[in-house]
Design a protein around this nucleic acid. Structure first.
Lengths: 232, 232
DNA sequence: GATAGCGGATAGCGCCACTATCCACTTTGG
DNA sequence: CCAAAGTGGATAGTGGCGCTATCCGCTATC
């Protein structure tokens, strides 16, 4: 298969494929002449994976390059691959050191020990959690910690489901990749489901025929009235 | 309070504050002279909210502008505000129409009806869910639907917790804002917790002292070996 | 009355994910 | 056999986004 066909099959434009190769996301095709190369279905799969991590997972190209490099590494230390995969989201580098941040970190440390989680309070996930809780605190929603355990229950449940799934997939060759996919795309799935559940909840609250426009229907489908005109 | 103090209190640079005002995220200060204005603690709060939605929630400035505009609208149709808040993530506009997408949409429609959710299969959340499932299918993880109900259980549980929290907050003036905060930042909280639970799970699997470097510790803390050198 | 800060406006920057163009060179269809 | 289409490789450019720098004339403050 040559690059044009690869492009047609995956819907990714040819220049974009070349770009991914340049950035190390996609291995180059096998040269048959000075300027002719063939691509296998491994390339096709890899392209699908890249697009999924980009479009659905919201990862950045550089992050994907790291994850894929770790994934291709024969001595694949799974938790390192996952680390590379999970270290997205982690927005700002500097951890603020105001009262809210300190309190949030304490809450997180307590949560981890209370749950008996084998995780460090210094892990990126814990730092992100603390940042989110600190932001809520600053906004006067410090009481959110009251439902933190419900959230943690849900997270444990999901993690258990993930484990079961991976277990069933065991012995399949692409397991490491499966874990990455599950971790990254699973997050998108869970977020969508949460939002769906919220739609349901608010539909029940405000009932069918509440604020006009029939039930909840495609809630949130409304576009802004004006076509984005700011700054002028 | 003048702009410098506002900047000092929130940690947001003065030019950035001006930028937010220009973009309509922050109301301008009250003019006391032709070129002197005062800002209240409403401005301070709003700035914290903006930074939280930006840094923790990962929203874009234009989206935040929409949400805040809806929030300030006296005739606040809550589900529209939330719609504006939730319509992020929705990456690509065009829905692909391959076999996997169709199958995924069917799965989502089935899930919604099976659970009795009062939500439309055309809602953005459902579309996002379908996109994620379709991507998994394309990657050979169509079997993920087997754990979809576990995920849905968790999502329902979280939504219930959110409802309870909002309920307790009822009668507080900033309830609408609270819902927005809960929706957007709650997602970050849930994601962090899921990742923490994954760290815990993989620590239990690969055990303490598994692949060297002591337990799991700050799993995922490793930076890429080289300081980002590609493309040269 | 000097200095620091201000509101307002415009222009520019750095990053990112592409996209366009060009070249010399195959491959392919007629 | 030859022209048109396609290819690998390289370099430069684009558009969007979240700021950031600079300048202006003015005002509060010491």
């Amino acid at each position: 298969m040559r690059i044009g066909e690869l492009s047609r099959k995956t819907g990714v434009p040819v220049p974009t494929i070349k770009y991914y190769v340049r950035e190390g996301l996609l291995p180059p095709g096998e040269l048959t002449s000075r300027n002719q190369a063939t691509y296998g279905e491994g390339h096709e799969r890899r392209l699908q994976l890249i697009r999924a991590l980009l479009d659905v997972g919201g990862m950045k190209v550089a992050e994907i390059a790291d994850v894929l490099a770790a994934l291709d590494d024969p001595g694949r230390p799974l938790h390192k691959v996952l680390g590379a995969a999970a270290d997205r989201l982690g927005g700002a580098d500097g951890e603020r050191d105001d009262a809210e941040s300190a309190a949030a970190r304490a809450v997180v440390a307590d949560l981890i020990s209370r749950r008996g989680w084998e995780a460090s309070a210094e892990s990126p996930a814990a730092a992100d959690l603390a940042r989110a809780l600190a932001a809520m605190d600053r906004l006067g929603h410090g009481a959110f910690v009251e439902v933190l355990d419900d959230y943690a229950d849900a997270a444990e449940q999901v993690a258990r489901a993930d484990l079961g799934y991976v277990d069933r997939q065991v012995a399949v060759e692409g397991m490491v990749e499966g874990v990455v996919v599950g971790t990254v795309l699973g997050e998108a799935v869970l977020s969508s489901l949460r939002r769906l559940a919220h739609v349901d909840a608010s539909a029940r609250l405000y009932g069918a025929g509440g604020p006009g426009e029939g039930g909840t229907g495609p809630a949130g489908c409304e576009a802004p009235d004006a076509p984005r005109t700011r700054r002028e």
